[in-house]
Amino acid sequence: MPKCSCCGRELKEKDKEKTWRECRYCGLPVCFNCTHYLGTTVRDLFGDHVEVVCVCGICKPRK
């Protein structure tokens, strides 16, 4: 059974993307209470845009 990488709460496999999500950077499961959202600049052929990604508390860069 997966556990939240930040708070250690037990998560259900069937509730993926409903109550928890995988961190975009480290790939570890993180519950919705511990998620942080990060705007990342994506450069493509026709310009650049900001894509919002879900990260855990450990992977979130500090200001």
């Binding site: 993307e17 409903k18 919705f32 998620t35 959202y37 705007g39 600049t41 310009g47 650049d48 845009h49 900001v50 894509e51 919002v52 879900c54």
Partner: peptide, 29 residues
Amino acid sequence: PLVMVDENYTVKECARIMSEMKVRRLLVT
């Protein structure tokens, strides 16, 4: 630049994103 989110995000998550990023419009991809 445009702020984009994936279509699999829930409504609650998007509300949080809007408040954290201080935007009122999210483009869905």
